Simulated scan of single mutants.
Amino acid sequence: MNRSLQVTIASRELYKKLIESCTLEQLNKIPQGFKNNIIWNVGHIVVTQQLLAYKLSGLSMMVTDEMVQKYQKGTAPQGNVSQEEVDAIKNLLFSTITKTQEDLDNGLFQNYYEYTVSTANFTLKNIEDAMQFNNFHEGIHIGVILQLRKFV
């Protein structure tokens, strides 16, 4: 599992650099032909990791219900995000993974509610599956952000 989390941390470092390379206006811009923006994609990967790892394990998440409602699968930006929210999302990039590592080390992930992901039609059966799929999912959204950057 440590290797999987190392991949997640490397992914999150790239997300951090992508956020820091954009202005607030660029983070919020939805280019023509797209349905979301850069900051939505970053918020989405944070929320998704929490849902896949914690909610499906029956554990409390580090993100609020409001954040889940705003960034979960099937949502789209409903207005501009403030700099304070960008900073909060940026902090969650790493604090969520640090907490996941601690909780793994402490054996908190005992149960898992199987879940079939629509992206790959693959059933997640445990926390290891969830974290491996999460890395795949984060890679998809890095690609989306790289596309978005060309138009903002």
Rank of each mutant, 00 (worst) to 15 (best):
T119F: 13
Q6K: 06
K73D: 06
L51T: 13
I30Q: 02
D65Q: 11
S82P: 06
T116W: 01
N111Y: 06
N134D: 05
N134V: 01
I38S: 10
D103L: 11
V46N: 11
K150C: 05
T123L: 14
E102V: 01
L51C: 11
S4K: 03
K90C: 13
T23D: 12
Y71G: 14
A88K: 09
T119Y: 14
N126M: 08
L59R: 09
N121G: 09
Y54R: 13
C22G: 06
D105F: 12
D105P: 10
L51E: 13
G139V: 13
D105A: 15
D105R: 08
P77T: 00
K125P: 11
L5G: 05
A10C: 09
P31H: 12
Y115Q: 03
E128S: 14
K17W: 04
V47N: 08
F136T: 07
E20K: 14
M67G: 04
N36K: 13
N91K: 10
N41Q: 12
Q147T: 13
I45D: 07
T116Q: 09
Q6V: 08
N37K: 02
V42F: 07
V42A: 02
L146F: 15
Y71C: 14
T48D: 02
A10R: 03
E138I: 00
H137M: 08
T48S: 07
E85T: 03
L92K: 03
S118G: 10
N2T: 05
Y54Q: 02
Y113D: 14
V144W: 01
N36R: 12
L52K: 02
N106T: 10
V7F: 09
K35L: 11
